[in-house]
Design a protein around this nucleic acid. Structure first.
Lengths: 161, 161
DNA sequence: TAAATATGGACCCATGATGTCCATGATAAA
DNA sequence: TTTATCATGGACATCATGGGTCCATATTTA
C-alpha cells in the first residue's frame, strides 16, 4: 500500500510551478526534464490537475502550465485526491456477513419491524478514524509550506558559515 | 490507494478468534464460513499471521488457530504491517533530480569537499509525517478495543428498551 | 500559414492482488 | 498403529491497475 509515482510527479511538478517566476507558464518539456519523466506520461498527470482546477493550461506557442490558485491554498490532500481518487482507505467487504451479526448479537432486538439494522463495521470505523487523522495532516501542509521550509533551510545553511 | 482485502480478512479473523471461547482453537473451516472466503485463501493469510507471532496454530484433529497474545496487545498497525508490508507510504523516486538541486540551490555551499549533501526530499518529509500520524492512530486501536466497543453498543441498545 | 503546445484516445507491458489446487507434514483419537 | 483431521507451502491461473508510449487533433501565437 503506497502512493503512486504519479502523486510524486504531481507534487514535484506543482513545486516547480510554484517556484518559477510568476506570470510565466512552464511548458511540459521543461517540467519533464526537471522531473526526469517522459512528456507523454507527465501530460496525463498535468491534465488531471487541470481538470480539477489545480493548474491552468494554455496551448499554443509559449503556452504551458501555471498554478490556478496561490500555493498556500494547494494542500497535499488536494493533490493526492486528484491523483489517487477519493475512495476510502478501507472498505469492509462483507458488512452483512455472519461476523457482524455475531458482533451485534448479544444486545440484538430481533425483527423490530424489519429495519436493516445499519450497524456499520467497527473495523471500518477504526480505519475511517485513521484516515481522518491522515487527511487532517495532509490538509495542513501545502505547496507553499514546502517552499517556505526549503527557504528556511537555505538561510540556516548560510548562517552556519 | 487502498488497503487490500487480505487486511480485511485478517482483522475480522482475529476478531473471531478473540471472541471465541478461550482455550478452544478455531479451525480454518469455521473461519472461512464466518468470513465468507475460501479456506485456501484464508490459510495463506493465517499463515502470515502465524509467522509474525500474531496467532498460534496447531495441526491435527481438533487443531486450529488461537491468538498468540492478549487481544489488547494486538494493534491494528501490527496486523496491517504483517499483511501489507512495512514499506513507507511514499518514496520520492528522484531524490537527486534537478528538482531537489534547485530547492537547495540558494543557500548552497558548492563542493565543500564533495559530500553528497544528503538533503532529503521535503515532499517525502511531509508524507512521512503524515504516515507517523496514521500509524499512531492505528497503534492506539487494538482487537480488544473493537470487542469492547461492540459490547458497549449492545448495552446501549438494551438500555434503550 | 506554420510552429509550438496541450489534449485525449488507443494501446502495451509488468506487477501485484486475489484466488484455486494439490502434495506434504503434523497431530490426536480410535 | 492406523486413520481422519488439520495446517503449510508451492505452483498456477486470472484479472485489475500502475506506469508508460504513440499518435491524431485542437488551439494559440509569431
Amino acid at each position: 500500500m503506497q502512493y503512486s509515482k504519479s502523486t510524486d510527479y504531481a507534487l514535484h511538478a506543482l513545486l516547480h510551478l510554484g517556484q518559477s517566476d510568476r506570470h510565466n507558464n512552464v511548458g511540459i518539456k521543461e517540467l519533464s526534464v526537471t522531473l526526469g519523466v517522459s512528456e507523454s506520461y507527465l501530460s496525463k498527470i498535468m491534465s488531471k490537475l487541470r481538470q480539477d482546477g489545480i493548474v491552468r493550461a494554455v496551448p499554443g506557442v509559449n503556452g504551458g502550465y501555471e498554478l490556478a490558485r496561490p500555493a498556500e491554498e494547494i494542500t497535499f490532500l488536494d493533490v493526492i485526491q486528484v491523483i489517487e481518487g477519493r475512495q476510502h482507505l478501507f472498505e469492509c467487504s462483507n458488512s452483512n456477513s455472519q461476523q457482524h451479526q455475531l458482533l451485534a448479537e448479544a444486545g440484538d432486538v430481533p425483527q423490530e419491524h424489519e429495519r436493516p439494522k445499519k450497524i456499520g463495521c467497527l473495523v471500518e470505523k477504526v480505519m475511517d478514524g485513521a484516515e481522518q487523522h491522515l487527511h487532517q495532516y495532509l490538509r495542513e501542509h501545502t505547496i507553499q509550506w514546502v517552499m517556505d521550509e526549503a527557504f528556511k533551510r537555505c538561510n540556516h545553511e548560510v548562517n552556519k558559515k
